[in-house]
Simulated scan of single mutants.
Amino acid sequence: MNVNKKVLCLTDIENGLEPILQEATNTSAENMLTLQSYGAAISHPYGEIMRSVIIAIYQEDVEEIFVVGTKDKKSSTGHVRTQLEIKKDKIQTLDYLFQHCKPEFFGGTVDEWLDGNSSGAIEKSVEIIRNHPLVPSYVKVRGLIVNPKDGTSSIVDVPVTKTDQVYPDHCLSR
């Protein structure tokens, strides 16, 4: 265990993950920072979650970031989706935008965007953090899937593809 290494874990709103994360990341409780949000996904490279990640890197000297998803989790968005069923015409419009205006919208449908906890969401979040111009190159960024029921974890391998673009394509037209 590297006693000096600071680790930031971006997690879902899930209780009891700390012991699993400490073991999976080989980090002590004193050196682990946890940033919780519904779905643990970064949907925009200049949104509030990404801002918090960047501030943590510089203020806390974070060396490694884990975007954490949970396995076998009951959908916390089920009630939200039931309420949204009433607004089917608006959801159809949003689904059209999600499919045709990427990368501003994360996910292919409103349901995928609301869930935000799939391995695809984790991979996309890892890419956004890795390729962000304000994230230093020495910071390691990885995905992690944990199963709170049995305490197991597995690393999500996201190939390193450095791009200089973290802006939507339509913002770059000159």
Rank of each mutant, 00 (worst) to 15 (best):
I122C: 05
E48Y: 09
S75C: 14
L97T: 07
G47Q: 07
E60N: 07
G78K: 13
H132W: 08
S52E: 01
Y46C: 12
S119K: 13
F106N: 12
D72F: 13
T70D: 04
T27I: 04
G143R: 00
L35A: 10
V80F: 02
Y46E: 10
G116I: 12
R51L: 11
S137V: 10
T27W: 02
F106G: 12
M50V: 09
N26F: 05
F66V: 07
K87N: 10
E112L: 15
Q59M: 10
Y138N: 14
K87Y: 14
G78E: 13
V62K: 05
C101L: 14
G108M: 10
Y58A: 09
I122S: 04
L114P: 08
E112N: 13
T82N: 15
I65P: 01
L114Y: 02
P45M: 06
S43I: 04
A40T: 09
I65R: 02
V110A: 07
F105E: 07
I65G: 01
N117W: 03
R142K: 13
F105D: 03
L97Y: 08
D111V: 13
Y46I: 14
G69R: 00
G120A: 10
T27V: 07
I91N: 05
V110I: 12
G39C: 06
R142H: 12
K73R: 15
T109P: 06
V141G: 06
V62E: 00
R130Q: 08
I42A: 06
K90N: 15
E64D: 10
E127V: 10
S125T: 06
V135K: 00
E85G: 12
N117F: 01
H100F: 08
I55V: 11
K102S: 08
S52N: 09
D111C: 15
H100Q: 14
S76F: 08
S76D: 15
G39R: 06
I55L: 14
S43H: 00
E112S: 15
E64W: 02
S37N: 06
I57S: 02
E64G: 01
G116T: 09
L94M: 07
E60I: 14
V62S: 03
V141R: 02
I55N: 13
E85A: 14
M50C: 09
V62F: 03
L94V: 04
I49K: 01
I65M: 09
I54D: 03
L144T: 08
F66W: 09
E30Q: 09
E85H: 12
M50S: 02
V53H: 01
F106K: 07
I65F: 04
K102I: 05
Y58H: 13
I54R: 03
G107P: 02
M32P: 01
S118R: 01
V139N: 05
S76L: 11
S43R: 02
G116K: 03
S75T: 15
S125F: 01
E112I: 11
Y138L: 12
K102P: 07
G78I: 13
F105R: 08
H79R: 11
G116Q: 07
